[in-house]
């Protein structure tokens, strides 16, 4: 079944979203690795439809929050409401209490709302006025943002970006995909027709099995060397954090599981290296000004091209 899970998810998503097989795989890897994803792309590249389709495949509860500059943390996490009958304050859960949360245009929300969400992402619980409530399991946030916006946005700071397991850049489709998209009736993007690929119960078991995938000492050394190289890289002012490397190993485990293996190989690490590390490293300004670097993801690729994997 493991060998088929990825293909079955991709097949279902393909019925609604064309040409996003790689992104669908990354969402699945992130879910199995118990992480959150930041989908970055200009408007109209199917970010929201992809997230909604993915949730339907997984058979889990899905909610969407459209972030706006006038939002308050309680709009998302919930708050205490006075119950006239019992004459007591009851906690009313906000939309964050779901399995898969689409945080649409996260960079439109003010920092207080962003940090409330990011706390939920990190702790898998929310605390309101001393009252702590655990979030449902699994809990995954798929946040979206448009990197081209400059007005009325609050960019996520580095420490908050670090909470995202992956950042997935959703560019424009290639010409063949664009043609296929135009040929298909644009109204035919009904996510209701997507069939459930796995039940919530099965998903929970799979996630447990992923944690048992073996990461050999050589692979751990390889990860540590990558981290060291990134921190010593002169074109970067901020290298990979320890959390980034832990996240990378979790993703590699999920990939190995989806490939039907009980152990991680260096290829598993490399397959998601750009998505896991690209948004966490920061280019050094002098490297940018002198033209030595202009893309952090390219620097990550070059580090991986330089560090010898265990062979």
């Amino acid at each position: 079944m493991e060998m088929e899970l990825r293909e079955r998810v991709q097949e279902q998503i393909r019925t609604v979203v064309i040409g996003r097989e790689r992104e669908a795989e990354l969402l699945l890897v992130a879910l199995l690795a118990r992480g959150h994803v930041l989908l970055e792309g200009v408007p109209g590249v199917s970010k929201t439809v992809l997230a909604r389709s993915f949730a339907r495949c997984m058979g889990v509860e899905f909610k969407r929050i459209q972030f706006t500059p006038d939002m308050l943390p309680m709009d998302m996490v919930g708050g205490f409401v006075f119950n006239m009958k019992d004459r007591e304050f009851d906690f009313r859960k906000g939309p964050v209490f779901t399995n898969l949360l689409l945080a649409d245009e996260i960079n439109r929300a003010p920092p207080k709302v962003q940090s409330a969400l990011l706390e939920a992402m990190q702790e898998f619980q929310v605390t309101v006025e001393g009252h702590t409530e655990a979030l449902p399991k699994p809990f995954m946030v798929i946040a979206t943002q448009n990197p081209q916006e400059f007005h009325g946005v609050y960019p996520l700071p580095e420490n908050q970006l670090d909470r995202f397991l992956m950042r997935v850049n959703m560019g424009y489709p290639d010409q063949a995909t664009e043609v296929a998209l135009l040929r298909r009736n644009l109204e035919d993007m009904d996510t209701e027709k997507i069939q459930e690929v796995v039940s919530a119960e099965e998903l929970s078991k799979i996630m447990e099995q992923v944690t048992k995938v073996q990461v050999s000492p050589e692979i751990i050394d390889y990860l540590a060397t990558i981290a060291k190289e990134s921190r010593g890289e002169t074109r970067l002012s901020l290298g990979a954090s320890p959390r980034a490397m832990v996240h990378l190993s979790h993703c590699a485990r999920a990939i190995a599981y989806l490939d039907g293996r009980g152990y991680v190989t260096p290829d598993d690490i490399k397959r998601v290296s750009v998505e896991v590390l690209g948004h966490r490293v920061k280019l050094d300004q002098s490297a940018v000004l002198t033209g030595k670097a202009n893309d952090p993801e390219q620097v990550v690729r070059e580090i991986f091209a330089k560090v010898k994997p265990p062979r």
Partner: peptide
């Protein structure tokens, strides 16, 4: 890997 000197040092067998 020695037989393929054009490959970057960071290449895996699969690559």
């Amino acid at each position: 890997m020695v037989s393929m000197p054009w490959l970057p040092a960071g290449s895996t067998w699969e690559e």
